[in-house]
Design a protein around this nucleic acid. Sequence first.
DNA 1: GCTGTTGCGGACAACACTCTCCGTTTCATC
DNA 2: GATGAAACGGAGAGTGTTGTCCGCAACAGC
Lengths: 210, 210
Amino acid sequence: MSGIGSLAAVPGGALPGKGSSGSAVRSDVERNHRALLDAARELLSERPNVPLYEIARRAGVGQATLYRHFSDRMAIVGAIAAEVLDEVEAEAATSAPEGAQGLANLLELLVSAMVRSGALLQLIDDEASGAEQPGTVTYELVRRLLVMVEGRFDGAKAAGALRADATPEDVVLVLGMAKGVIMGAAPDKRAAAASRALDLALNGLLAHRG
Amino acid sequence: MSGIGSLAAVPGGALPGKGSSGSAVRSDVERNHRALLDAARELLSERPNVPLYEIARRAGVGQATLYRHFSDRMAIVGAIAAEVLDEVEAEAATSAPEGAQGLANLLELLVSAMVRSGALLQLIDDEASGAEQPGTVTYELVRRLLVMVEGRFDGAKAAGALRADATPEDVVLVLGMAKGVIMGAAPDKRAAAASRALDLALNGLLAHRG
DNA sequence: GCTGTTGCGGACAACACTCTCCGTTTCATC
DNA sequence: GATGAAACGGAGAGTGTTGTCCGCAACAGC
């Protein structure tokens, strides 16, 4: 778990005052960082393509400050996606991880997080374009997502609950499918549409005794 | 079938010289119209967000000419989507429309057309935002798509091949799912990913005797 | 409170894209 | 070929977004 609240551990959170000189972090820096994350989180959830200057305005800081805290758009999107993944991980830890239900539970958590968070949505969207080279924000987050998913996948597979030809990549595919539905639906219908889509896709992944 | 080749019937093809005075269509108009469609089709297939001025350049005409033929982006995208739907309809007519296989065949044709044509992809993408008000390009095309799909859906449902709770909206959902996968995949992996996604989703829609 | 350092923010340059204006060219007709 | 009408295309105005510069303000340490 990449610590929420630990500034230094926030991906992309290259804070201005983070030099190795060991000086304390200025209070305004920390305050602004949090304000930016909160503003971005709120705005991205409704409008994944919201311009960065609107995020800065909502946070009550100048654009330059935003860029001082996050080098580019993907840095702030990634920081929020990381927080959301933290939360999903925490929620997932409270449910039994075994069998088909374990996989279904995790996917439900992930998909409902995608509905709430435009950041996670954008992460899945970049999965193809940016996930290939190590070092990128997308790459690290997607790897983390894969690790989360693979554990549950293996459990479901071992229990004989899945189609014989099912692979972990199929699970990523399912997330991509949910993404398409969420992005294409009107805001007030996203949750229902995504839930139904996940139902269909998961059902398609299960082993059915004919 | 909205006639390919019949200029007046092309949606959004409000040709400059199309006044009711009955005068013949100028040859350069027709030539440019076709050149624009061809250019757009080619460019949109690889890059759904290609700027309009690139389409004009590829067609060998000025931007003003593009706007004289198509009032805005959606007009040209819609014109191409209509052509693609024509082709899918023609292909679909050669396969048996009955039962689950009939539905599967149509969806396969549609999804592979989405892989090839960025225009159809954008149409599905707009399905939520633009399909609500009659009169828009998106509305008419989505309605046409629904009609195509509903026939086959009813056939499959009547044959008892589908889940009891399956609705025609689920089919639209499946197309949205495919869209998400296609847009998220690297160009050379789109076909495979879309095919697999369709397999999962369709399988999820089928009735499975437990 | 004073001071050096660090971060701040408004304003701006740069860019990408859409859509339009107007002088020029091409077309169909005679 | 001459002529009027219609379409053409280059150039540019308008718009929205990203990313940067530099004088100014806030902070931490003394």
